[in-house]
Amino acid sequence: MKTNLNTREPLGQWFLGLIKEIKNHKFIYIAAIPVLFYYALFYIKPIYGLLIAFKDYSFVKGVMGSPWTDNFGFGHFVSFMSDPYFFRILVNTLAISCLGLIFDFPSAIILALLVNEVRSEKYKKVIQTCTYLPHFISIMVLCSMIHTFVAKDGLVNDIIAFFGFERSNMLVRPELFRPIFIISGIWQGVGWSSIIYLAALSGIDVQLYEAAEIDGASKIRQIFHVTLPGILPTITIMFIMRTGTLLSVGYEKIILLYNEMTYQTADVISTFVYRQGLLNANYSYSAAVGMFNAVVNLIVLALANKLCRRMSETSLW
């Protein structure tokens, strides 16, 4: 049965085909009902709710009934651009996610390369079990561990004091927020993110290594000339996916770690949306900010995809 919308069959014929199909595949269409309901209620409806970004929303009037805002509906976007905090949260968001891209992203690849070179299978297993472990600790527990470790009498300060530096409550120091955020992120995620590269590594042809060995290549040269090129497609795909979330950093973790004293380096777009929207109930304004964020994400993703396709033939689409 050929059913392709693009073949431009007349609508009536398509519709008849659909009815016939529903008759033949009753269960599939019954199964589709809850799924479509789910998407309608929890995916499409919120997207429709994005309309409030162009309106002055009030809960009583609803999405449709609320009046359009000024500047042809773009009032909230305009006032966001001229918000005194616009620049700050944009810079913070970019800074945190770029730092993540620079340090977090390669760390998993490096770990995978190192683990791949371990010759004892047992040791390899132990390493993997231990490095995956932090992934299963909840964000809440991770953040509370950070809170207690970097407190004035915490473990990290003990170590710092041991080397003769001064103790301080590190979570109220704006210049330390980003390092704390990134390092704890690496701690939690590096092992887990390395799985995908390890999978790719196991797919590399052993003959390539044998050939390299005969040519007299050292282990380190083999890594650079055989292993890395072998997993480059995987790295590229992961890189594109990562850039697609460039403007959406993990706000749950930031909310648990930041405070008014570190807003100048820690406040990002999504935490701003959270405070404006849910704590101050500026629904329309924060929906506009969130939409700005999502659209920029999409654009960055498309650009990264294009760039990678031009450079390496690997791309998402």
């Binding site: 479509l36 995916y43 409806k45 997207i47 709710g49 999409l298």
Partner: peptide, 22 residues
């Protein structure tokens, strides 16, 4: 239809506030 919904939900969604209101 399902594929379109699935893939687009990976890259774009209503976001925190519209979801909350919904």
């Amino acid at each position: 239809l399902l594929n379109v919904l699935l893939i687009s939900s990976m890259f774009f969604s209503g976001g925190m506030i519209p979801t909350y209101i919904t």
